[in-house]
Amino acid sequence: MSGVLTLGSLDAAFTAAADLEGEEVVVDLGSIDFVEPAGICGLAALIEYLLPRSRGIKLSLSGSDVPAYLERMNFFRLFGGRVETDRDISALEDRRRHNPGTLQELVNFRTEEEIPGIVERISEILENQGYRIRERVAICSTLSEVCANAAEHGTDPSSEAGFGAYAAVQAYQHIVSGGTRRGEEVLVAIADGGPGVRQTLSRNPENAGLTTTDNDALRHALSMGVSASGELGRGGGLPLVAQISARASGSLSLRSGTARVTAYKERTNSRNVPPFPGTFVRVSLPRPSEV
């Protein structure tokens, strides 16, 4: 791993983790110098995936920025008792927790009842940071819909990774997701340990033929009214999140199984990728500079 920690940079680790038989594992983050919400959620999902397969997990860290960021994002509070680190992080815990850019530290949730509290907190922070009501609504609606999907489908008791879901949100004072545009950007990332989109949608016979591959299933999930239950009114959240991100000239990325689909304003890209156990969602909501 090097540079920016995203979900993609953990692909090799997920692939290797599938073959573990109780060995000790070292996750080397030594060359990472920047972590985005997708990276921290991916790391959380990876550790949850590794825990039942390994004898112990050690994080290899270097420098001070990444460990400090992980601490600010509550990572060590959530995983401190379950992973070791190759350096003393107790000093980080004593630091004053101040990061005006952080909207939502890494949070683990399992039920829908926890979501309003998460959304309320982010809404307050956004308001304090001067985000207009329309922008707050877009960000919070996105978060609540994706979290609700994760809470509903990420806690399948038959799934090996029964950790519920992790979410993280970060506001940046620059555009992170490529391009040369000027402005700010909010990134939302959520990872759940459920059975994945294809298996979930396959419960509904109406989706047969449209969920043959993981890529098919992810594209199908972006259509209005597509759901696991087939109930009228269901399956509207994700397409609306895609609309919100497209309106902001951002993107919605879904990853599940061996597929990744990213929806932009005018196109949707699909790719085959190494397997991800569960479902991962990343939403980019740019905030262009005012002229």
Partner: peptide
């Protein structure tokens, strides 16, 4: 109401209207 997501709207109004 400042924020209402689709899930809430469907459950409160969509199902009620139905």
């Amino acid at each position: 109401v400042e924020l209402m997501d689709y899930s809430f709207a469907d459950e409160a109004f969509g199902i009620l209207a139905s």
